[in-house]
Design a protein around this nucleic acid. Structure first.
Lengths: 196, 196
DNA sequence: ATATTTCCGTAATAAGTATTACGGATTCGG
DNA sequence: CCGAATCCGTAATACTTATTACGGAAATAT
């Protein structure tokens, strides 16, 4: 199979997996429905991903790449505007349909391996990046950059993510994301002004 | 069946349901395992709760009572200490094994009815209560008490709840809960001092 | 005490699902 | 253009589970 065709087929499988995850949940996303929807065969699913958890682990791995891309954008200046820009994109990503679907899958996995993989490809990448950026903005402080990053993320996301995961709210629109990013950054810098 | 016996049997069923939910997740919590573990019969489960979602809806309903009890404690003074006390209990409740299990069940329910019930018995009760308390502490402000309550809850809980639900952290201990409640209250009152 | 309801324990039903298997079509390397 | 590998579509396998059914025991009411 040509590499190009294979990549397209992989994208079809991932799209179908996300769609099923959003519509039916992890338990309801059956391999047969996935194969039919993706226009792939069941055999291919098992040959490529091993088993059902493996398929969703692959989704999580690719999600980690998306997280990296979001963080790498606007990596130039280390000022409040850069933090707002990162927050805006980050919030849209974290509350977007794909991240929410992955979190639901992780919540359904009682063993916790999916959750661990999701955290490694998400929070464990985001936190140091944000901490470095905030540290560069605020300078030396009584509070460590790590704690400031946690604070800023709490202000930014709030309970939007858990409410998205249990299905009580829709994804916030672009305006909401920007305003929350601005407010969170403003609150952080009011509590811990630069050069404190 | 005597009312007393029935109440005890209901508690056994609820305990078993929570235990299975924590160990196996919603899909893995089978009615047969639940009956065996609770010492009840399958027929009783269906006679009392209708079906499997109905059983977990009953769990959510009883959880709402617990939330009310937590909020009603220390309802006397309207000062920062009261807010810290409420926050401490609230965080312990929200990150405790039972609330986490219910959130996992809601996340596994793609239709969203469990999530809706959980929100109605949880957030929709907590938010107005906290907003009233904060409003009484801070007095009139540019920000509405509702927004301040959201801010305080974000500071209090952060991402602990979602991380608990996807299984990457253990429940915070009592010390952590108290410190977070103190820090969240301190941050809130620094950002929006009373009599602003 | 006895008739009636309720419950337990177990089995049966019916449906769904992860995983494996296979024949025929398609694609790829030479 | 041809053989080998890969893939699709479908079916078969083996297993699990929600829900219903039923006989006998326990409790309840009269």
């Amino acid at each position: 199979m040509r590499a190009e065709t294979r990549i397209r087929r992989q994208a079809q499988i991932e799209d179908a997996a996300y769609a099923l995850l959003e519509e039916k949940g992890y338990a309801g996303a059956t391999m047969q429905a996935l194969a039919r929807r993706a226009g792939a065969s069941i055999e291919t699913l098992y040959n490529w991903y091993g088993d059902k958890p493996g398929l969703f682990r692959a989704l999580i791995a690719r999600n980690a790449e998306t997280v990296q891309e979001v963080l790498d954008q606007r990596a130039g200046a280390a000022d409040a505007a850069a933090l707002v820009a990162v927050g805006e994109r980050l919030l849209a990503l974290l509350t977007g349909p794909r991240a929410v679907a992955l979190n639901r899958a992780a919540a359904a996995d009682a063993e916790g391996t999916l959750g661990l993989a999701l955290a490694q490809g998400g929070r464990d990448i985001v936190m140091p990046h944000v901490a470095t950026l905030i540290g560069a903005i605020t300078g030396a402080h009584g509070e460590t950059p790590d704690r400031l990053a946690e604070l800023w993320l709490a202000l930014l996301v709030g309970d939007l993510q858990i409410r998205r995961v249990i299905g009580t709210i829709a994804a916030p629109d672009a305006n909401t994301c920007r305003q929350r990013a601005e407010t969170a950054t403003d609150h952080l810098l009011r509590l811990y002004p630069p050069q404190g």
